[in-house]
Write a protein that binds this DNA or RNA. Sequence first.
DNA 1: CCCTGATTCGC
DNA 2: GCGAATCAGG
Length: 168
Amino acid sequence: MDWSEERTATLKKLWLEGLSASQVARQLGGVSRSAVIGKVHRLGITVRETPVRQRASSIRVPSRMASRQRPVREATTAARQIPTFERVEEDLLPTSGILGLGAHSCRWPIGHPDSQDFGFCGRPKVSARGSYCEQHSQGAFRRVGSNEALEAWALKGVNDKRVQPNLG
DNA sequence: CCCTGATTCGC
DNA sequence: GCGAATCAGG
């Protein structure tokens, strides 16, 4: 496999979107994460645009998506604080593969980064400054169950596992 | 043991 | 230029 212009462009975009080197490698196929890291360095895009302070040691799409999809209020000690709503991804299909993502495209990731049909929402952004379309910027909230059910759920300690609808 | 990016260096 | 091996971590 060689670094064709198209594959290089894909690598750039995926990397700049915040996918890890291994995820980029799996999306591209036929390359190792070392290859991706090496290429990223040669391209000089090793420093991503977002300020270092705002980033964790690595940006991982799954965790980024998971954090977006966490309950509005965390379940802590009191039953009253158990969430009644969860933020879940709407059933919007990607309109865009990574190559079609433009400056005005919603960058909400859809699907698992390891999967072949991983893509981005691609609908028009609501503003020039934001990154998302109307649906994805305001967030879609959907009632997922009774307080009782959620409480039982939370007490079982399934907090971390719940609802990552598009992570496969 | 899973993962992350950074660096080196023979090819 | 390329990327496996290695390093330094989370």
